[in-house]
Computed example of a mutant assay.
Amino acid sequence: MIWQISVALIAVAFVVLVVFLVKTLKAAENSLDKTTQTLQEIQKTVDELSYEVKQVVRQANSITEDVEHKMKQLDPVLESVKNVGDVLNEVTLAAKQVSTSLIGRMKKTSHKAGSKAGAEQVVAQEEHPIDRSMHTYGSTYDRAANSKSEPGWMKWVDIASGVWHKYRS
C-alpha cells in the first residue's frame, strides 16, 4: 500500500509539474508569437523605408546630375566673365598709364620755369605716387587760383588721377 501511495504521490507531483510546464510553455509560446508579429511589422516597415530611401537616393543622384550639367553649362559664361574682367583690367591699366603720362607732361610744362619747380620735382620723386598726385593737385590749384591761364580740364585730370591712385592702393 505504501507503494501505491508513493506511486500516486509521484503521479500527482508529475501532473502538477506537467500543468506548470504547460502554463510556462503557453506563456513562452505567446511571447514568441508576439515577438514574431513584432518582427514581421518591423520587416514591413524596413521594406517600406528601404523603398523610400532608394527613391530619395535616386532623386539625389538625379539632382546631382542636373546640377553638374548646369555647372558645365555655366563654365563658358564664367570664363567669359573672367575674360571681361581681364580686359577691364587691361583697359584700366592703360588708362592709368595714359593719365600718368599726361600728368607727367603737364607737370614738365608747368614746372620748366624757376628753381621752385626743381625743388618740387625732387620732393615729388621721393614721395609716394599718391602723395605726388596730391602734390600736383595742390600746386595746380594754387596756380589756378593765382592765374587763370591753365585750362580747366587739368583740374579734372588731377582729380581723376588722385582718385585712381587711392582706388588702386
Rank of each mutant, 00 (worst) to 15 (best):
M1A: 08
I2T: 15
W3S: 09
Q4G: 07
Q4T: 06
I5L: 12
S6F: 08
S6H: 14
S6K: 08
S6G: 11
A8H: 04
L9Q: 13
I10V: 10
I10N: 08
A11D: 02
A13S: 04
V16G: 05
V16A: 10
L17D: 09
V18M: 13
F20D: 08
L21G: 08
L21E: 12
V22Q: 05
K23V: 09
L25M: 13
L25A: 08
A28H: 07
E29D: 14
E29F: 12
N30W: 11
K34W: 14
K34T: 09
T35D: 11
T35Q: 11
T35A: 11
T36Q: 14
T36N: 13
Q37I: 03
Q37L: 08
L39S: 05
Q40E: 08
E41Y: 06
E41H: 08
E41K: 13
I42C: 09
I42Y: 08
D47F: 07
D47S: 14
S50H: 02
Y51M: 09
Y51Q: 08
Y51L: 09
K54D: 10
Q55P: 00
V56E: 06
Q59E: 15
Q59R: 12
N61E: 12
I63G: 08
T64D: 09
T64S: 10
E65S: 14
E65H: 10
E65A: 14
D66P: 00
D66A: 15
V67G: 01
E68M: 12
E68L: 12
H69K: 13
K70L: 04
M71Q: 15
K72P: 00
Q73P: 05
P76H: 00
P76G: 00
E79D: 10
E79A: 07
S80W: 04
V81H: 00
G85F: 01
G85E: 07
D86T: 01
D86M: 05
V87Y: 01
V87D: 02
L88K: 03
N89Q: 05
E90P: 00
T92V: 11
L93M: 06
K96N: 11
V98F: 07
T100G: 02
T100E: 01
L102D: 01
L102W: 02
M106L: 06
K107E: 15
K108T: 11
T109S: 15
T109P: 02
T109Q: 09
S110M: 10
K112P: 04
G118I: 13
G118Q: 12
G118H: 06
G118S: 11
A119V: 07
Q121S: 07
V122W: 02
V122N: 04
V123M: 15
V123Y: 07
Q125K: 11
I130P: 03
I130R: 03
R132K: 13
M134I: 11
T136Y: 12
Y137I: 01
T140W: 07
D142M: 09
A144W: 02
A144D: 06
A144T: 15
S147H: 06
K148S: 13
S149Y: 11
S149H: 10
E150S: 12
P151G: 01
G152F: 06
W153G: 11
W153Q: 15
W153H: 09
K155R: 13
K155Q: 10
W156R: 15
W156V: 10
D158Y: 05
A160V: 02
S161W: 00
S161H: 03
G162K: 04
W164E: 14
K166V: 07
Y167T: 13
S169N: 09
